[in-house]
């Protein structure tokens, strides 16, 4: 029988079919958390280049100006904004604040996140 709860069903956390806004927020928070964790690991690897001398680090920084890296950085900013703003909503809800407004507050905060992503995107790709 596959119906009872099981940790092996975790993949269904990421299945948004037939679910509502709360689940979309739930899924977004998990995906962005995984993305930010991966970024943290990559960031530490990048910083470790310093231990190999200034020239090695400078070469890496030059590589980071590659457009692919810029898109990656953009994703990090997007993940940070989405995860952070959604996290504030969840924390407030967890203290019993605004729980009835969880859907509208999520949508509003995601609009803020979108505006932030647009702003940072403009600075990164068209600034200077």
């Amino acid at each position: 029988m596959t119906n009872p709860p099981s940790p092996s069903h975790f993949w269904r956390w990421f299945d948004p079919r037939n679910r509502q806004v709360g689940t979309w927020a739930y899924i977004l928070n998990r995906i962005t958390a995984l993305g930010l964790t991966l970024y943290l690991a990559l960031h530490l690897v990048a910083l470790s280049q310093l231990a190999q001398g200034a020239a090695v680090y400078d070469n890496f920084v030059a590589l980071a100006h590659n457009p692919v890296f810029k898109v990656g950085e953009m994703l990090v900013i997007a993940a940070g904004l989405i995860h952070g703003l959604n996290g504030i909503r969840i924390a407030l809800n967890s203290f019993g604040i605004g729980a009835r407004l969880q859907k509208s507050s999520f949508l509003m905060l995601m609009l803020f996140a979108l505006a932030g992503i647009g702003y940072f995107g403009f600075i990164m790709f068209f600034g200077e």
Partner: peptide
């Protein structure tokens, strides 16, 4: 985990 599917 605050998905609120229960209330839905």
């Amino acid at each position: 985990h605050s998905a609120f599917e229960c209330s839905e």
